[in-house]
Every structure is written in structure tokens, then in C-alpha cells.
Nucleic acid binder design. Structure first.
Length: 480
RNA sequence: UCCUCAGUAGCUCAGUUGGUUAGAGCAUCUGACUGUUAAUCAGAGGGUCGUUGGUUCGAGUCCAACCUGAGGAGCCA
């Protein structure tokens, strides 16, 4: 008999038919005469209730049906006599595929703290919460490819090992094949990278953007979606040393086109989750509500998870220039009453988390796109505006997450770009290939980077980024 | 990296101004129960109180350093 997934079974409710299911036991309860087994196979949030009449099975078999065990069951589907589920399976054959010693198996049929589950990340997939999170993560990932494919973008795989250290996006992880106890030195006593595997210094990528630009300058529209590495000693609920980033790059597009693309893209992804992950979202929403009940009223979420997601889809993002944002902040109550840790005094200051949160959560109460930032606080490749003070950069800020997207129109004018690189101390000779796109057939182009885990955080309503990636890499932590 | 808080049974936590043998709920095990929904009821087992050092007649409790975790900040996506 062919196995049926529990999701398909619960949706079709084939009452009266004999079916085969396989999965992992969540709980077993019952009396002398009858046992109830909650079985989950990861195909959906729901469990299938298996009813096992103790007369039909040896004590030996039923004793091995414990939380965590993998079993295979054949039985007839019938309407449930109990409440809580509409159909159940009356077991005829139970095969134990893999036992789970109940004295040692760490997952119990009760709520565990997320901190504890992080320590057993290899098993946390088996909980309802992480099942929901990873199904949603998959759906979002699929929606991203779907959106770009429908809109004429090509998926470009940019290198993970990069020879360029000029990407300007933070500390990099060194990639080397050297025997670390015996590193070759040159005549000056410095490390001789000519002897290393690639014949040069190499690192893990911090961004695929520069390479994506090269692709966009021929294919018109490309996107990358891959792992990204930052060796920053960041210990927050929003940062990972290894994370996944989505980076579209579009030729013949200015900053407004870039903002339009990012907003449309985010709305499509969120709508996709609403349309395709209703059960998992409902579970997570309920979970958040239960947690909120423990908190004081002023710390509770103003909107439920699905309300929050619908709000994103249904409302225009607020577009504000950096200059206007500074004015709003300067005249804001927390600034005047000196409640900000960093007071806004003059134009040119970098915005802190508290300022971004004020704009998004208090002032506009919706996603905000900030654009036209001071050139001094942004990267070298961003296009200089006519005012000579600002660059065509934009950040999208989401409630609870902060910066979810960072993008810009790229500097396409060779002389302006090389001038900028001098100011930023970036050697032209290392970037010859990048500059070639400005020498030969240069054109306006734009793009942005989206932190995938931050998107997953927002859509699932989880609060720590380590709980939306299977095996988080953070400073001092690379178990599993 | 900085600031704050925490670390007691498998999990979640309580433990009084330092004072006999360190507790609870859940989980586990044993038994009871004809349909349970985190089943219920009865009983049992389970501890190097994060580590090291110090103060003291005496430390889970006080002090120091370190380790681990969480929240916030910086860096950013």
C-alpha cells in the first residue's frame, strides 16, 4: 500500500477507506482497553489521531509507541467519536520503525522554551512551532523565486568564495588552505597569499551585489538568493554570522523604480504566505497570543499576526527622505524631552535603532521607506544626487524588525565612481572588472538586498532570528 | 565588543536577614481506569544548586573571576 501524507488524508477525509501512514509519535494516552496516538509526519501542523484497541496489539508493540518514536500504521479512516478532530484512524497494523527511549528523549508533550529547543536544534523540527516555522520558511523561499520568475528576472548564483574585499559590508571570514601551523611568508615577512589555494587572499562573500550588477548589465534583470557571511561580533536577536540574502539588480532602473520593486515584491511574498500557510500562521498566531497573556498590557502586540500581515499588503509604504525624517525626529516628543539616547541635533547624523523604531512604530505606524541619505554614511557605489550631499539610497523599515531591505541606485558614471573610490580608499586595480561595466555601455541601474531571515521573522512573528534558520551560526556557536 | 538580568531534578520554576536531611508542577517509571485531547487518579525514582576560588563555625543564599544563556546597544540584512 502506498503511504498517504497526513495533510492529504485530513484534507480528503477518506472515511471507510484503508490507508497507510508513517510519522513520529507526539503523544500517546489512553486506558487499559484503548490507546490514542497523536501522529505527525511534518506535512502539516495537525496530527492524525490513531486509535489502537489494546486487544489487537501486543503489549510489546504498544510499549514501544512512545513520544518521538517513528511508526508506520495501517488502518481504516473513520469519523471520530471524540471531539477535537473530525476523522481518525482505527489501527489494524502498527510497525515500530524506530524507538525513542522515553527516559532519554528530550522532547516532552508540553511547551518547551525556545532557548531550550535551540540547544537541541537537531530535534526541534519535531515540535509544532518549528514545523510551522520551517514550512513557512519554505513557502517564502518558493514565493521569492516565483515572483522573480513571473517578472522576468534570472536567478544568478554569485560566488560564495570571493577574492574581493571591497564590498564594504562588514568583517569577512578568511578562506584559506594554509597549514595554520606553518603559514608561508614572503621576503617582507608577511603572509604570502600567492602560496594559498587561489593564489590570492580570499574570503566568504558578504554580498553578491557587485557580481549581480555585472549580470544585470547584460541580462537586464537578475537576482541572487544565497548564503552570506559576516564575521561581525554581533550578539542580537536580529543578526547571524551566516544568513540568506536576496539581491535583485535591475538595469535601466532608478531609485523610484527600485522602491516600487521592493514594495511590490514584499507585498507579493506576504500575500503568498497568507494564501498558502493559513494553518501554520493560525498556530503561530495563537502561540503569540498565549505568550502575550503573560505580559503586561502595554507590551502586547497591537495587532494579531494575520492582521499585521494583511496590514502590510493593504497599505502603501510611507516614503520619506532622510532630510524630512530628520525634521520629524528633531521635532518629536522623545527628542525634545531628551528621551532618545542619541538626540537628533543636526542633518548628517546616522539614524539609530530607537529613531527607526519611532518613525515606524509611533509616527507613521506602517512600513517606512527612507531614501536620499547623506553620502558620508553610505557605501561608495551608491549614486550621487544632484545636491552633491546625498546619495540615491533607500532602506525599508518594518515594525519590530527594523531594516529589512537596504538598496540604492548604483553610481553608473565612471568619473564620479572612481572619485568616490579614492575617498573610500578602495584600490581601483582590484575592482577593474567592476569599473569595466562603467567603461563599456554603462547605464543607470538599481537593486536592493533583503535579509531573508528577517523576512521569515516578520512573517512568522517569531522574535529571535536564531529560531527561523535551521542551524544558526552566531559568535561562539556553530554546533550541529 | 559594551550595559543589564539569569543559571537549583529531563523541562519550567520556588527556595525567607547565611542555619538541620534542597521543594513544586510537568515529564519518566509502576499500578488503576471502556474514547482520550498537554487525559485523569495513586505511588516511586530522580540533585556535584553553571565552574573555580574566597569570606564564614556554617554558603543554593554573601564576594571575585570565568563559562553559558537571554534582553538591549553598536555593526548591519
Amino acid at each position: 500500500m502506498e503511504r498517504i501524507k497526513i495533510d492529504a488524508l485530513l484534507k480528503s477525509e477518506p472515511v471507510g477507506e484503508k490507508k497507510l501512514v508513517k510519522g513520529w509519535v507526539r503523544t500517546k494516552r489512553g486506558s487499559k482497553s484503548v490507546n490514542f496516538i497523536a501522529l505527525n509526519d511534518g506535512s502539516c501542523i495537525h496530527n492524525l489521531q490513531i486509535v489502537a484497541d489494546t486487544e489487537n496489539f501486543s503489549e510489546e508493540v504498544l510499549r514501544k509507541v512512545t513520544t518521538g518514536a517513528a511508526i508506520s500504521v495501517v488502518g481504516e479512516i473513520s469519523e471520530s467519536k471524540g471531539s477535537g478532530q473530525s476523522v481518525e484512524m482505527i489501527a489494524e497494523e502498527i510497525e515500530i520503525l524506530g524507538v525513542a527511549d522515553s527516559e532519554k528523549y528530550p522532547l516532552q508533550p508540553k511547551k518547551h522554551s525556545l532557548e531550550f529547543l535551540r540547544e537541541i536544534a537537531h530535534l526541534r523540527f519535531r515540535t509544532s512551532t518549528f514545523g510551522a516555522v520551517f514550512r513557512i520558511r519554505h513557502a517564502l523561499s518558493f514565493a521569492i523565486h516565483d515572483y522573480f520568475n513571473k517578472n522576468g528576472f534570472y536567478y544568478l548564483n554569485t560566488p560564495i568564495i570571493t577574492g574581493s574585499d571591497a564590498e564594504g559590508a562588514g568583517e569577512m571570514f578568511r578562506v584559506t588552505n594554509f597549514d595554520l601551523d606553518n603559514i608561508p611568508k614572503n621576503e617582507e615577512g608577511k603572509i604570502d597569499f600567492k602560496e594559498d589555494f587561489f593564489g590570492r587572499e580570499t574570503n566568504l562573500t558578504v554580498s553578491g551585489q557587485l557580481e549581480a550588477e555585472l549580470g544585470a548589465m547584460a541580462l537586464s534583470q537578475v537576482y541572487t538568493f544565497g548564503p552570506t557571511f559576516r564575521a561581525e561580533n554581533s550578539n542580537t536577536s536580529r543578526h547571524l554570522a551566516e544568513f540568506w540574502m536576496v539581491e535583485p539588480e535591475v538595469a535601466f532602473a532608478d531609485l523610484k523604480d527600485d522602491m516600487d520593486l521592493a514594495e511590490d515584491f514584499l507585498k507579493y511574498i506576504v500575500q503568498y504566505a497568507l494564501d498558502n500557510c493559513a494553518d501554520d500562521l493560525a498556530f503561530l498566531e495563537n502561540r503569540i497570543e498565549q505568550e502575550d497573556k503573560q505580559k503586561p498590557k502595554d507590551q502586547r502586540q497591537p495587532m494579531s499576526l494575520t492582521e499585521k500581515l494583511k496590514f502590510i499588503v493593504e497599505n502603501e509604504f510611507e516614503r520619506v527622505t532622510y532630510t524630512d525624517a530628520i525634521d520629524i525626529l528633531r521635532n518629536s516628543k522623545p527628542n525634545k524631552k531628551k528621551k532618545f539616547n542619541y538626540l537628533i541635533e543636526e542633518w548628517g547624523a546616522d539614524l539609530q535603532s530607537e529613531h527607526e523604531r519611532f518613525l515606524v512604530e509611533k509616527h507613521f505606524k506602517k512600513p517606512v521607506i527612507l531614501y536620499d541619505y547623506p553620502a558620508d554614511i553610505k557605501a561608495f557605489y551608491m549614486r550621487q544626487n544632484d545636491d552633491d550631499k546625498t546619495v540615491a539610497a533607500m532602506d525599508i523599515l518594518f515594525p519590530g524588525i527594523g531594516e529589512i531591505v537596504g538598496g540604492s541606485q548604483r553610481e553608473e558614471r565612471l568619473s564620479v565612481l572612481t572619485e568616490k573610490m579614492k575617498d573610500f580608499n578602495i584600490p581601483e586595480e582590484e575592482m577593474w572588472w567592476y569599473l569595466d561595466t562603467r567603461k563599456y555601455g554603462t547605464a543607470p541601474h538599481s537593486g536592493f538586498g533583503l535579509g531573508f531571515e528577517r523576512l521569515v521573522l516578520f512573517v512568522t512573528g517569531m522574535s529571535n532570528i536564531r529560531d527561523v534558520i535551521a542551524f544558526p551560526r552566531t559568535p561562539g556557536s556553530a554546533e550541529f
